[in-house]
Amino acid sequence: MSEALLETRDLVKHFGGIKAIDSVSIKVMEGEILGLIGPNGAGKTTLFNCITGTYKPDGGKIFFRQKEITGLPSHEIIKLGIGRTWQIVRPFKKMSVLDAIATGSLLRYSDVEKAKEKAKEIASFLGLPKDILEKRGEEITLMQHKLVDLARALATEPKLLLIDEVGAGLRPSELSAMIDTLQKINSERKVTLVVVEHIMRLVMSISKRVIVMHEGRVIAQGKPEEVSNDPQVIQAYLGIKPI
């Protein structure tokens, strides 16, 4: 088995008395698309926030490419090659779409013209229509927003991309397009993906491997079809004991 790209060891994060994450140890392998599922409040987003340095974990360690990153400031973690997107889009409303994506590229290319070129390239890779590049963040549709958020994160040239519920709010046709896009990012850009998702169709169709979280713990992992038959998982989702 190859080395893990990202590894958490016994990660703990609590808010007040509530353990949002309770000794979570996961490995993300280079090149894979890992699905991260679980009911609301399972700790998936908190896990993302700990990995990206938004939260300081209360215990445990995080390694990225064999280097410990626990407690590093966010901007250093991102620079090492981690990107993320959010369930609710966070557009740069008063900037043009191109400028927003280029701001991401500036992490690797300090020259603005070069960064804009890179941004255009990423935009066309994600299939963003050319005419929206000059539009401002407040003037585009939700699907376009999601793509711009993805583009902005991709522009920082991450090795690992943490994607939080990208399917939320999309129509079925848009969802299919999004699934294709994520697969394309993984295969053509060689970006490892961790995909938090509620929409099972999305996870099951793109992930070879799934991790299930519940109440801050990892309760199952494996192939999607195995996991979906796991009694613990069924109990977590349905809240009843299997017979």
Partner: peptide, 9 residues
């Protein structure tokens, strides 16, 4: 926050 997440100090 989004700025931080594209690597800006």
């Amino acid at each position: 926050l989004a700025a931080e997440m594209i690597g800006i100090d």
